[in-house]
């Protein structure tokens, strides 16, 4: 062990690069990437069936974080219950949204549903700004995940490791469900040809509603996960959503796996930039988007132009 640390100290400034700093930023990048992946995945699932871009995805992520915060503050519902209950609550909210606001205009130009969900995002963000102010609220890391592990090149807080493991598991499970199970086959068939599905006696509107609820529930889940690491604030959703839009343009909406991979990759690229050239860390993902538009406009995993 001692030997390992001595080696670590030598390696710490390998080629003039501060490895402690580098790994630290890589970890931050992986965490951001996990959130990007969850949100992009939700967007891709919703887009697959409804052909709409859910502009309120960011606001629902924010709603998830605030619901977890309120549940703890007012109802003493702890983190683990929140992790289970909040996605259901946000998902249920999404189902109401789809049923009463989005479905009536399902046959109109899809730009209208984009504008509609933008309106929903404005309302949610406005309400929470008024109720809680625009400065962030703290949410404590659950007891079980406090502390951290010392690795050769870095200190890994347990909660951060948990975010990465948990969100990747959720992403992988969702991918498996959609690509490999019967339920997923319905979903994919509904994406290909909803009329034919309907003719086979499958309740397509119900599948659409549930899919929307699920996609939105993923945003709620991301919100709970994010509450202890980022401060819970009304603007947390809009900032991340624009980045996720860029990610969606980079990856293309063609595949579920593509959305997850692009989300993670962009998080890591952002982390690396934060280390090597911090001035560009806010903009690097947008610059990658520009590059992709120049080289392969349909996106890395896109099927259509």
């Amino acid at each position: 062990m001692l030997h390992g640390y001595a080696l670590g100290a030598v390696m710490a400034t390998f080629l003039g690069i501060n490895l402690f700093g580098l790994f630290g930023q890589l970890l931050v990048g992986l965490i951001n990437g996990s959130f990007y992946a969850l949100l992009a995945l939700g967007l891709a699932i919703i887009f697959g069936l409804l052909k709409i871009i859910n502009f309120s995805q960011g606001a629902l992520y924010m709603l998830g974080a605030f619901t977890a915060w309120m549940a703890l503050e007012y109802l003493q519902i702890n983190y683990w219950w929140a992790l289970f209950l909040v996605p259901l609550t946000v998902g249920a909210f999404g189902i109401l949204l789809e049923r009463f606001l989005i479905r009536p205009i399902a046959n109109e130009d899809h730009l209208y549903s984009l504008l509609l969900t933008f309106g929903v995002a404005l309302i949610l963000q406005g309400l929470f700004t008024d109720w809680f102010g625009s400065s962030g609220l703290p949410y404590a890391i659950p007891e079980e995940l406090k502390g951290g592990t010392k690795l050769p090149f870095m200190y890994l807080p347990n909660y951060r490791a948990w975010i990465i493991i948990f969100s990747l598991t959720v992403c992988a499970a969702t991918w498996f469900m959609i690509e490999k199970t019967k339920l997923g086959a319905y979903l994919r068939a509904g994406t290909e040809n909803p009329q034919l599905m309907q003719a086979f006696g499958i309740n397509v509107p119900l599948i659409v509603t549930l899919t929307y609820g699920f996609g939105v529930g993923l945003a709620g889940l991301a919100g709970v996960l994010a509450a202890p690491v980022y401060s819970v604030s009304p603007e947390m959703g809009s900032n991340i959503l624009i980045v996720v839009f860029a990610i969606v343009v980079i990856g293309g909406m063609g595949s579920i796996g593509g959305a997850i991979l692009t989300g993670l990759a962009m998080g890591i690229i952002e982390g690396l930039t934060k280390y090597f050239y911090p001035e560009a860390s806010n903009t690097v993902i947008f610059l990658v988007m520009v590059l992709v538009l120049l080289v392969k406009p349909s996106g890395m995993f896109g099927k259509e132009a």
């Binding site: 606001l101 009536p104 205009i105 109109e108 209208y112 549903s113 504008l115 509609l116 933008f118 309106g119 929903v120 995002a121 404005l122 309302i123 949610l124 963000q125 406005g126 309400l127 700004t129 008024d130």
Partner: peptide
């Protein structure tokens, strides 16, 4: 304090009933 909220409501009304 509710300017954004009102904007959002107008947005939704326009899209739903007033295209």
């Amino acid at each position: 304090n509710y300017i954004h909220v009102v904007m959002g409501v107008v947005f939704i009304l326009c899209v739903l009933a007033f295209r």
